[in-house]
Design a protein around this nucleic acid. Structure first.
Lengths: 147, 147
DNA sequence: ACTGATAGTTTAGGGGGTAAACTATTGACC
DNA sequence: GGTCAATAGTTTACCCCCTAAACTATCAGT
């Protein structure tokens, strides 16, 4: 059991902490150079929720509201999102523009191709099932605890 | 098959791209506040190789040599690593100091406890096997291609 | 009306990264 | 031996990201 923990820790660090970063940096795709991963994540979440407040976006992304404020400013400049005023005038709802939806779709398409390509080449059918199972679990754990 | 790809893409983004970052930020451990993940990765790699050049470290971390230069400067200031001159006077070998080794050990211990705790609580034995299998695969893929 | 709570923005300070210019040193070739 | 291109690292300019704390505006309850 002890050895397995040790290996798990190594793999954890290697894949989750460092591997992903390295991979993101090495991908050369015009979309990913123009928009940062964090900006893409914002688009994704805004798209999923339809309309969303800064405060909620901060919770979902796990960052301070000031970080969100900074990000939304950039997305507004790029005209990928727009602001809708609500009755409570302190609050602003963010939603995607047509351009924002287009970017999001394009990004999803690229990633889908990437993953599909990867899986068909290097991963067999049974492994895909296991991959999905493990990642569903990880996703759930990350949302509640923290790893 | 198409639905599975779609789910895989979602999980990919959620867990690898964003989840890990969020988790790292939310962990409150004095060690992790004092040293960035990148600095810890440097320590880990230097420790693993014993002695290493900046150039090699840059390749292993997948970043430019200027980024490594910046990081090593900080680690030197914190006295976690030291420099050894070689015959080729352009080149510098980096190695851990005793303090560096101590930090690395402490970090591994903390992570091991974390992972162990997580697994015993939320993951059953069979899942651990699957987890290891999938992550070994991911690790291998990340080292060659990029995801 | 007052006052405390809430939503967002701003500022200061510190992480990360790239790309390109620059220093120092080496090694190969004439 | 002298010249010059290649190599290892550093520096600089410019960008992204983050937190913490101060600040503005607005709302809601007493």
């Amino acid at each position: 059991m002890d050895m397995r923990i040790k290996e798990a820790v190594e793999l954890f660090q290697e894949v989750l902490f460092y591997g992903t970063e390295r991979v993101i940096r090495s991908v050369d795709n015009p979309l990913w150079e123009e928009f940062s991963p964090e900006q893409m994540q914002s688009l994704k979440l805004i798209g999923k929720e339809g309309q969303i407040t800064s405060a909620r976006l901060a919770v979902l992304q796990g960052v301070h509201k000031s970080a969100v404020s900074n990000r939304t400013k950039k997305l507004l400049q790029k005209e990928l999102i727009q602001v809708v005023q609500t009755a409570d005038r302190r609050e602003k709802l963010l939603e995607l523009t047509a351009a924002g939806r287009a970017v999001l779709e394009e990004s999803d398409k690229i990633l889908a191709e990437y993953v599909e390509n990867l899986m068909s080449e290097q991963v067999d059918d049974q492994e895909i099932e296991q991959f999905l199972k493990i990642f569903r679990k990880l996703s759930a754990i990350m949302k509640t605890d923290g790893v």
